[in-house]
């Protein structure tokens, strides 16, 4: 009966490595938040506790606009990319090979392989023409460009989830005369959920990070937080950016908490 007490799920050392990974992930973030409360204008020398930089950030409308714009772009691009990637993943997995399958796979992952500066320069040239023709110069260009490079980041986790996922459940539902849409909503989608969430989160953070493409595609008054910081890098970066980052983090923690409670109610 020794087997009963033995947890088949645990692997020796995995918990320790996972703990280490989380320490690695959070250590820089903790220092980052700590320096948001630095009284001096240095990112490295501690000058006492102060809320000074939060005040600065609250007064600096340029940086707030940029942060807000980044969030809007990331949310829109990640949402569109996740929907498109989910559809594409369903279309390219669990199927007998058909003509064009490998082509689709390569095609969808292509944005990953094109160096950012190349996409940036080429999009600049193409979008500039479109801007002149249509007279429209809103955020749409940035969202479209971000969506494109987010697609592989959403696609790969979803596809990894789908691959080898048992089709029996869906077939059973279809046999019970559930219309295809119902089968998808009630069976496929819930099974896919972890993949979709992983894909969406990846797409979201990738979009938040982008500098080079945004720098070239943005029109007047469309600085995102990264392009704003790129401009600052040459001169001086103060803990003001830490304060903004800390605010972002606080927001994300609130979201996680809400998410956690919603999830708890469901189960």
């Amino acid at each position: 009966m020794a087997r009963a007490r033995f947890d088949v799920r645990s692997q020796p050392g995995f918990g320790t490595i996972a703990l280490f990974t989380f320490v690695v992930l959070y250590l820089p973030i903790i220092t980052l938040v700590a320096y948001a409360f630095n009284a001096s204008e240095s990112l490295t020398a501690w000058g006492g506790f102060s809320l000074h930089w939060f005040g600065e950030a609250a007064r600096n409308t340029a940086v707030q606009d940029a942060a807000w714009r980044s969030l809007v772009i990331a949310l829109s691009a990640a949402s569109v990319a996740t929907v498109a990637a989910t559809m594409a993943a369903i279309a390219t997995t669990r199927t007998a090979p058909y003509r064009g399958l490998g082509f689709k796979y390569a095609f969808i992952n292509l944005p990953l392989m094109v160096p950012e500066i190349v996409t940036a320069v080429a999009l600049l040239i193409v979008f500039a023409r479109v801007k002149v023709w249509t007279g429209y110069s809103g955020l749409g260009y940035l969202i479209l460009a971000h969506t494109a490079f987010c697609i592989p980041f959403a696609y790969l986790p979803i596809r990894a989830r789908l691959e080898g996922m048992d089709e029996a459940l869906e077939r059973a539902a279809a046999d019970l005369y559930a219309p295809p849409w119902q089968v998808f909503r009630r069976v496929t989608l819930p099974l896919l959920r972890p993949g979709i969430i992983a894909g969406f989160m990846l797409a979201f953070v990738i979009s938040l990070d982008d500098v080079v493409i945004s720098e070239f595609v943005k029109s007047g008054g469309q600085d995102t937080l990264p392009t704003y910081m790129l401009g600052q890098m040459r001169r001086e970066i103060t803990p003001e950016v830490n304060a903004i980052a800390a605010a972002f983090l606080a927001l994300s923690v609130v979201l996680v908490t809400i998410f956690f409670f919603i999830n708890r109610k469901k189960t």
Partner: peptide, 23 residues
Amino acid sequence: VTVTDYDSNDTALAKVRAGGHGF
């Protein structure tokens, strides 16, 4: 007034040369 940033002469030149910039 709207202020937009660049971080190098070459980026600025490339962007303005492409047109449709609105600056």
